[in-house]
Simulated scan of single mutants.
Amino acid sequence: MKIRNYAISFGILLGSFTALPAIAASFEVPRSFEIMYVDLESASQFGNDFKVDLDEGQHQIVVRFNKLLRSGGDTHEYQSEPVVLDLQFTKNGYLILKAPYISNQKQAEANAKDPQFTIYDDVTGQDVDYKKKSLTTKSGLQNTRDYVSEIEKVTATKTLDSMRSDSGPVRAPILMAEDVALGMMQFWYNESDELTRKDARIWIADNMYKPKVANTQLDMFQFWVKKADKEAKKEFQAWLLK
């Protein structure tokens, strides 16, 4: 009886461990920064303002310098424009944003204008390369800004620019339309492998279809299809037939 009870208890304990989700990768910032968005989703969906857990692969993470300093009994806030980072995460990777310690008003003002930092890989012990783009400074109340729309436009502009200058493998020709969504659908379709392209073609014709693949290319393709209007979708389907 004791052996049986022990076996049952061990099975329950083992089951509780296997039920826990595995964390593929993490990203952390110091207290002088905040994580605003991960792949256009609020950071609160992934963890908190200072550390997020996410799947391996490429992710777009938006951060900003955000420092409170006390001076003469008053508290002053110094905040930069959001900075869009393109980062590649490996399985069980741990990337850390490292920034200088800010102790006075002059340092805070300088970093609010131009945040200084590096991205450090805590697993390899090396700094990592990354691409970044800051949003344009705007006047007026910041809490009325639609940051997600601004980030979408910045991302689309960078991606379309890379399409025009890319000298890599042969791709389907891009229609240089004014419609950003159309260009982005074409881009992510071109970035996909054959299985993903097949699922994308079926899904765009029947959005009730459940794709068999799951990857960043298909996620981004679906994102931009949902953003596109009817005319852009028709143009994309016509482009597929060329």
Rank of each mutant, 00 (worst) to 15 (best):
E56P: 01
I204P: 03
Q126V: 07
A156H: 07
Q186L: 08
K131T: 09
L85T: 03
D114G: 07
F46L: 00
K212Y: 03
A177E: 15
F46R: 02
V38S: 02
V83F: 04
S80T: 06
V63L: 01
F50K: 15
F17L: 15
T137R: 11
I61T: 00
K106H: 12
D199P: 10
Y101T: 15
F236I: 05
T75W: 06
T155I: 12
G168M: 10
F236Y: 02
K210H: 13
F221M: 02
S165D: 12
E152Q: 12
K230Y: 13
K132T: 06
F117H: 02
H76F: 14
N104R: 06
T75Y: 04
D206M: 01
D219K: 10
A181C: 07
S192V: 11
W224F: 13
D55R: 09
V62M: 02
S162G: 05
D229F: 09
N48P: 04
Y6E: 14
M184N: 00
K132L: 08
K158V: 02
V83H: 03
F187M: 08
R70D: 15
K67G: 09
E150N: 04
K138F: 09
K91T: 05
V62E: 01
I102P: 08
A177P: 07
K138L: 13
A99W: 10
D166V: 09
W188C: 00
V83D: 01
K2E: 14
G15W: 12
G93T: 00
F33T: 01
P115G: 07
K226H: 12
K153H: 09
L240A: 10
N66W: 10
R31K: 15
D39L: 05
I23S: 00
A7W: 10
Q142S: 11
T18S: 15
P82S: 06
K106L: 14
S134I: 01
I35L: 05
A108T: 10
E56W: 04
H76A: 11
N215Y: 01
H59R: 08
F223P: 01
L135K: 08
Y147V: 11
A232T: 07
D166K: 11
S44P: 03
Q58F: 08
D127C: 06
Y94F: 15
G73R: 05
V62L: 02
F236L: 02
K138Y: 10
P21K: 05
G140C: 12
Y6D: 14
E150K: 01
S149Q: 11
K198Y: 03
T136F: 09
D166P: 04
T157H: 09
L13G: 01
K132Y: 12
P100E: 13
G15N: 11
Y147G: 03
S103Q: 14
L20S: 11
G140F: 09
L195F: 03
P173D: 11
I12W: 11
S44Y: 04
G140K: 10
M185G: 04
K227H: 11
T196M: 06
T136E: 14
R197P: 03
T118Y: 06
K153N: 08
Y37I: 05
K234I: 13
M184K: 01
L141N: 12
V128P: 05
N215K: 02
F65P: 03
D219W: 08
F89D: 02
Q222N: 07
S26G: 05
A108K: 07
M185H: 05
A172E: 10
L14E: 13
I61V: 06
F65W: 06
